[in-house]
Amino acid sequence: MTDPAAAAPLTDEAVEVEVVRSETPFVGRVWNIRRDEVAYNGASIVREYMDHTGAVAVFALDENDRVLLIKQYRHPVRLRDWEIPAGLLDIGGESPLVAAQRELAEEADLVAASWHVLGEFMTSPGGSDETIRIYLARDLRAAEETFAREAEEADIEVRWVPLDEVVDAVLARRVQNPSLVVGALAAHASRARDWATLAPGDAPWPRRSRSIGEDGSGHAR
């Protein structure tokens, strides 16, 4: 007998649960650690997770199907890893698209005339509420203004790499930055479908991370 649910499109299910108690045992410079007591399946469970503001990333592709990559030091993993431009959604009231445009200009001194949503993902749903939206940026040109960079960004290395070579590096496990991995595989698959999977740059983002310190309704705790 066929399961009726099996015929429906494959999609994650949003669930509203009762949060009995919530506290913030650690407050950091960029994000916090939250501890929630939740009523679920007739039991009370406690879960700790990173309370994250969310982020955007930019998969910039030129007319020759080359991807803009940047190499940057990441202290937790002790690597200068290959990435795509990305940044936090930490400016109140700023739209994700505007944030992505800002990050491309600040990290790569580029602007793009064409913007589409390429993909979205949750970085670690068992331990963080962070979501990232990846934009496909095309019709690129140099920005009129360049930006001073400091700390980890001071020695950013920039390289243009053919999309197929980036996918090869992902599949060979030579590069492992999640935004780069997801973006490269999504772009490779979308290109094979004549980019029919893309969404407008200002498409709604219902699963976007809530602001730090807010509950699911957008109210401060």
Rank of each mutant, 00 (worst) to 15 (best):
M1W: 01
M1G: 11
D3Y: 07
P4A: 04
A6G: 08
A7V: 06
E16A: 15
E18D: 14
E18Y: 07
S22R: 15
E23G: 14
P25D: 11
V27C: 03
R29W: 06
R29E: 12
V30K: 10
R35G: 08
R35Q: 03
D36Q: 14
Y40I: 09
Y49W: 14
D51R: 03
V56T: 14
L61N: 00
L68H: 13
L68Q: 08
I70V: 14
V77H: 03
R80N: 03
A86T: 01
L89M: 13
I91N: 14
G92F: 03
E94K: 14
S95D: 11
A99G: 15
A99S: 15
D109H: 07
L110E: 02
S114F: 07
V117F: 05
L118G: 00
G119T: 14
F121M: 05
M122Y: 04
S124T: 06
P125V: 01
G127D: 05
T131S: 13
R133K: 04
I134V: 14
L136V: 02
D139M: 03
R141L: 08
A142K: 12
E145Y: 01
F147S: 06
F147T: 09
E152H: 00
P162V: 12
V167P: 08
R173F: 15
R173W: 14
V175H: 03
Q176C: 13
N177I: 04
P178K: 13
P178E: 09
S179K: 09
V182Y: 01
G183R: 12
A184W: 10
R191I: 07
D194G: 06
W205R: 06
P206R: 06
D215F: 05
G216F: 07
G218E: 05
A220Y: 11
